[in-house]
Design a protein around this nucleic acid. Structure first.
Length: 629
DNA sequence: ACAGCCT
DNA sequence: AGGCTGTCAGGCACT
DNA sequence: AGTGCC
C-alpha cells in the first residue's frame, strides 16, 4: 500500500468541457480527505498530508461500511446545511479544533459526511494506473449503505449539471476524463468549473436594518483611483461578527460618500472611511456590474484598501481579445494592423489549446511580460504547427516583416543579424501569431549588450523528482543570503527552476558566469549527493540536479518569466515567492488557463529583477571565503 | 510565410 | 498557374 | 574535426 499520497488535483476551467470522454461530479465544498483503511483501522490525511481523523471521530465507523481489508479512498469531508448543501463555513470551525470535548460535541450535534469519489488502492492492488471509470466501478462495489458515507454520483451532461448546481446554490462542478489515471498532481484530466467566486472589497458604509447593529455593508473596489460601488452584502454574519464589525465601523463614520458616483446606492447608507477590506464570496457579476448573491466571509488585514480592484477571472469572465468563431481576425493593436491567422489550429493536442487560446493568454499577461522582453534581442523559436510538430529557430528578421517592429543589426560570427524586439503589445502578439510559443530574450539589453543584468542560476533535473529541484533552489538561496544577494525564483515551465540574481549591467558575461560557476562548485562540493556538474549528459549522474552555468553567455537565451512553454499541459514559466518553493511545488501547477488569475492575485513577483540591481563587489569576496571554508 | 523551382 | 520544397541559429564543452 | 547539448 503506498504510504504518503498527494491527492490528484483539478485545473480551473471556464466552462464544462464537452465530449463523451468526460463525466461530471458536484464540487463539494469541504476539506479533501484521503481515507486509509487497514484491517478496519481508519486514518485520514488532508491534501497536505496532515493526519486529520482525530477531528472527525464520527467517521470511525467507515471501515465497517467499506468491503475491503486494505483500501485508500479519496473524497471530501463536508458539513451540510439544512438543504443538504455542503458549506465550507460549517466545517471550518472543526478543521483546527483541538479541544476533545468540543470535537465530541460537534461530532454529536452536526456530524460531517464523507463524499467518496475515488478508489486509489484496494486489497493488494494499486489502482493508480487503472482508468477512472474502472476505479469508480470498483469503488461502488465495495460501498455499503451508511448515512455518513456517500458516493459522489457522476453525470454525463455537464451543462445540465452545471445549471442544476447553480439552482441548488452549489459551488461548482468537477469534470473528469473517464480514461484518466490517478496522478499525484494537478492535472488537466480533472477540471473544476466554479459557480462562486471570491475576492476582497472595500467596506464603504453600512445600511441599518431590522436586526441589531446593521443590516448590510456597502462594498466597493477601486478603478482608476475612484471607488466604485459593487453592491451590498447582508449575509454571512453571525451575532458575534455583527458586533465586532460594528465596533470597528463606528469609529470610522464620515459624512461624505466615498463612492465616485451615487448610482443605485440605497438611501440611508451610513458612510465609513473606506479602510476596511472584506473577503466576499459571490456567485457572479450582474450585467450592471454588481455582485450577485454576495456572502461575507471575514475581514482581511493583509491587503490595503487602495489595492482592492475588481478581479477579472479568466475563463469565468472571459475577456477575450480574439473571441471564438472566426479562424482569421484582422485587428489593430496599438495602431498597428495585425492579421491573426489560423486561430483554430490546435497548438497543444493533449490539452486542446489552440493558437487563439495562446494569443488570448499573451494578450492577458502582456503588461506583465513585456518589461522582461523590452530592449532585449530575441531568438525566435517558431512552432508553426503546435508543440508536437517540428519547430525552427529564427534570429534574422526578414525584410518583409512590418516596419514598426523594432529591429537592430548586431554583428555575429557569420554575417550580421537583424534581431527583432518585443517592445510593445503589438510586437508580442505579432510574434505569437508567427508561432512563437515561448519567448527567449537575451540576458542583456540594448545599450549594454555585453553585460547581463542578471545572473542566471539554472537548475535542471537529471531524472529526479521536482522536490530535489526545490531542495537545490533553497540551498542556492541559503548561499545567496550568506553573501548578501537577493535571488528571484521561477519555474521554467519545463522540469527545472531558474533563479535570477539581478545585477547592475557593469559585469561581463564571463564575470557573471564565473560567479554562477563558483556557486555551483561550492554547492556540488557540499552536497555531492544532490548536484551533478559534468557538461556531457551521459556523464551526469542520475537522480541529481544539474546546475547549468554555461547558458549564461552573450547571444544565449532562456525562456522569460511569464512565457508559455511548448510542453503538454501548456505550462507557464511562473515567478514564485520563496515561501512557495517547498516540497509539493510542481511546474504543472501553472498553465495558460490558470495563470492570469494567479498573476492578478500575486502581482509581479519578479519586479525586483528589473527594479533592484545589485553590486557584486562585496559579494564576491564573501563567496570566495565560503569556498575556502 | 515566402521564395524559388518544378511540372 | 499552381504545387512542392527548402529555409528560417549558433557557440561551446567535450571526445 | 566532429558531435551533442542548450
Amino acid at each position: 500500500m503506498p504510504g504518503f499520497l498527494t491527492p490528484m488535483g483539478a485545473s480551473l476551467a471556464g466552462h464544462p468541457p464537452s465530449g463523451p470522454e468526460w463525466v461530471f461530479e458536484v464540487k463539494w465544498d469541504g476539506v479533501r480527505g484521503l481515507v486509509y483503511i487497514e484491517d478496519k483501522q481508519l486514518t485520514i490525511y488532508s491534501r497536505t498530508n496532515n493526519r486529520c481523523d482525530r477531528q472527525y471521530p464520527e467517521l470511525q465507523v467507515l471501515p465497517h461500511f467499506i468491503a475491503a481489508r486494505n483500501a485508500i479512498l479519496d473524497g471530501e469531508i463536508v458539513a451540510l446545511d439544512a438543504h443538504g448543501v455542503s458549506k465550507f463555513e460549517l466545517i471550518q470551525p472543526r478543521i483546527h479544533q483541538q479541544d476533545a470535548n468540543s470535537i465530541a460535541k460537534m461530532a454529536q450535534k452536526s456530524p460531517v459526511h464523507f463524499y467518496v469519489f475515488d478508489l486509489v488502492y484496494l486489497d493488494g492492488y494499486d489502482l493508480r494506473r487503472v482508468e477512472l471509470s474502472e476505479r469508480k466501478r470498483a469503488l461502488k462495489a465495495i460501498l455499503k449503505p451508511h448515512p455518513l458515507l456517500r458516493f459522489s454520483d457522476d453525470f454525463a451532461a455537464g451543462a445540465e449539471l452545471l445549471e442544476a448546481a447553480r439552482q441548488a446554490g452549489l459551488e461548482g462542478l468537477i469534470a473528469k476524463c473517464k480514461s484518466s489515471f490517478y496522478e499525484s498532481r494537478r492535472s488537466r484530466q480533472w477540471l473544476k468549473i466554479k459557480l462562486t467566486h471570491q475576492q476582497e472589497f472595500v467596506i464603504a458604509g453600512y445600511l441599518p436594518g431590522e436586526r441589531d447593529y446593521f443590516g448590510s455593508l456597502a462594498l466597493g473596489y477601486y478603478e482608476g483611483g475612484s471607488l466604485i460601488y459593487a453592491g451590498n452584502v447582508g449575509t454571512g454574519f453571525n451575532e458575534r461578527t455583527l458586533r465586532e464589525l460594528w465596533h470597528v465601523l463606528e469609529p470610522r463614520r464620515i459624512s461624505k460618500m466615498p463612492f465616485a458616483k451615487a448610482d443605485k446606492i440605497p438611501k440611508g447608507t451610513v458612510w465609513v472611511k473606506p479602510e476596511l477590506v472584506a473577503q466576499i464570496k459571490f456567485q457572479n457579476w450582474t450585467e450592471d456590474r454588481k455582485l450577485r448573491a454576495p456572502v461575507f466571509l471575514g475581514l482581511r488585514d493583509d491587503k490595503p484598501a487602495i489595492e482592492v480592484e475588481r478581479e477579472e477571472s479568466p475563463g469565468v469572465v472571459p475577456s477575450q481579445l480574439l473571441p471564438a468563431g472566426k479562424n482569421e481576425i484582422p485587428a489593430t493593436i496599438g495602431g498597428h494592423p495585425i492579421k491573426f491567422t489560423n486561430l483554430d489550429k490546435i497548438y497543444y493536442p493533449e490539452d486542446g489549446f489552440t493558437k487563439r487560446d495562446l494569443l488570448n493568454y499573451y494578450a492577458g499577461v502582456a503588461d506583465l511580460l513585456l518589461p522582461y522582453l523590452k530592449d532585449r534581442p530575441l531568438s525566435l523559436k517558431r512552432y508553426p504547427n503546435g508543440i508536437h510538430e517540428p519547430f525552427f529557430f529564427q534570429k534574422n528578421t526578414p525584410e518583409t516583416y512590418p516596419a514598426w517592429l523594432r529591429t537592430e543589426v548586431l554583428p555575429s560570427d557569420g554575417r550580421p543579424i537583424r534581431y527583432v524586439f518585443a517592445q510593445d503589445r503589438a510586437s508580442l502578439l505579432y510574434l505569437v501569431n508567427l508561432g512563437c510559443i515561448d519567448h527567449n530574450p537575451w540576458m542583456s539589453r540594448i545599450g549594454s549588450l555585453e553585460c547581463p543584468d542578471y545572473i542566471l542560476i539554472d537548475l535542471d533535473p537529471q531524472q529526479c523528482e521536482f522536490d530535489k529541484i526545490v531542495e537545490a533552489a533553497l540551498l542556492v538561496k541559503e548561499k545567496l543570503d550568506a553573501i548578501g544577494l537577493t535571488g528571484y525564483p521561477k519555474t521554467t515551465g519545463g522540469d527545472g527552476m531558474h533563479i535570477f540574481v539581478p545585477i547592475e549591467p557593469r559585469y561581463t558575461y564571463a564575470q557573471a558566469r564565473s560567479f554562477a560557476e563558483v556557486i555551483s562548485r561550492l554547492l556540488a562540493s557540499e552536497r555531492p549527493d544532490l548536484f551533478t556538474t559534468p557538461r556531457a549528459v551521459e556523464k551526469r549522474e542520475k537522480n541529481r540536479v544539474y546546475f547549468d552555468y554555461l547558458q549564461l553567455a552573450e547571444s544565449k537565451t532562456i525562456s522569460s518569466a511569464y512565457s508559455a512553454r511548448a510542453y503538454d499541459g501548456a505550462p507557464v514559466s511562473t515567478p514564485l515567492t520563496w515561501e512557495e518553493v517547498r516540497p509539493g511545488l510542481h511546474p504543472s501547477q501553472f498553465d495558460i488557463a490558470n495563470c492570469p488569475e494567479r498573476f492578478a492575485r500575486a502581482g509581479d513577483l519578479f519586479e525586483g529583477v528589473l527594479r533592484k540591481p545589485q553590486k557584486l563587489e562585496k559579494a564576491f569576496p564573501k563567496l570566495e571565503k565560503l569556498v575556502r571554508g
